[in-house]
């Protein structure tokens, strides 16, 4: 039994790279930038014991979250594309391709 990750065309691969790329930028790349920019190292404001905000993130967390959500939307769109694209004919063709690879 094989995984369907073999059944990829150019659009699938573009969606895979763009979707996961946006998520990686939002979480990892901008996370590294945020960390190197100093406190707060997380993505929430830093408060003192009195509850006063003493430092805010350099990058608005909404931007980072937005990039991740956008990545999810790209992956979802690709899933829908695969769903719509699938026909008995394409299914047979993809299976034949997988066998010959």
């Amino acid at each position: 039994m094989t995984l369907d990750i073999n059944d990829m065309d150019l659009l699938d691969r573009a969606a895979m790279l763009v979707g996961t790329g946006l998520m990686a930028v939002g979480v990892v790349v901008l996370g590294l930038v945020e960390t190197l920019a100093g406190e707060p190292y997380g993505a929430a404001p830093l408060t003192n014991e009195a509850g006063e905000v003493v430092a805010t993130p350099m990058i608005d967390p909404n931007i980072r979250v937005g990039l991740v959500v956008l990545g999810l939307v790209v992956l979802a769109a690709d899933g829908l594309y695969k769903l719509v694209r699938a026909t008995p004919e394409t299914d047979e063709a993809e299976n034949a391709t997988a066998v010959t690879q």
């Binding site: 997380g42 979250v65 991740v68 959500v69």
Partner: peptide, 23 residues
């Protein structure tokens, strides 16, 4: 799983507990 991703996206964004980072 698609339904779970939809729910968890709303939980993740809505809870917004990012004190230790986005993850």
């Amino acid at each position: 799983c698609a339904g779970g991703v939809f729910f968890m996206t709303l939980f993740w964004v809505g809870n917004a507990d990012f004190g230790h980072g986005l993850v």
